[in-house]
């Protein structure tokens, strides 16, 4: 079946992230000078303005910083998913990532709940990182 939802549009900044997703790796830029892990990608560290950057692979574990439950579709292709959950995930490595929480009832989701990444291969070219309520015990709790 044809995938009807919007597709990622990688640009020079975000391409390494989407390439990572394709390999089921959650990649973020890390500043080699101050160790700050950032998102969205940028040529410069917003903390210290260093351009000395490496890409790291994140664990895929984090917590729900906050979330919202869509009851109306703002794009026709999401109507079939209603109600669906978008969330900001606070990853163990620091950055916040916007994604979906899948595989649960919206009533189960709470702020600060531990979650882990699940990969959704949507086309030959693209994979989306989504999250589910953690099945592994949260190492930080």
């Amino acid at each position: 079946m044809t995938y009807r939802k919007p597709l990622p549009q990688p640009n020079a900044d975000t391409k390494p992230f989407w390439d990572g997703c394709k390999q089921h790796q959650l990649r973020f830029q890390k500043c080699r000078d101050c160790q700050y892990v950032r998102w969205p990608p940028s040529i410069i560290c917003p903390r210290c303005h260093s351009q000395d950057t490496e890409w790291i692979v994140a664990s895929g574990r984090g917590r729900v910083y906050t979330f919202a439950v869509y009851h109306q579709a703002f794009h026709e292709s999401f109507r079939e998913d209603l109600p669906y959950i978008t969330a900001i995930i606070e990853l163990e490595e620091g950055p916040h990532l916007l994604s979906n929480i899948v595989g649960c009832n919206p009533r189960e989701v709470k702020c600060d709940m531990p979650v882990e990444v699940v990969w959704e291969d949507i086309t030959e070219e693209f994979t989306l990182p989504k999250f589910r309520i953690a099945t592994q015990p949260d190492v930080n709790s």
Binding site: K5, P6, L7, P8, Q9, T14, P40, Y70, A73, F74, H75, F78, D81, Y84, T86, L98, S99, N100, L128, K130
Partner: peptide
């Protein structure tokens, strides 16, 4: 686009 893929 980085948000729209998730329906945001």
């Amino acid at each position: 686009p980085d948000k729209a893929v998730f329906g945001q």
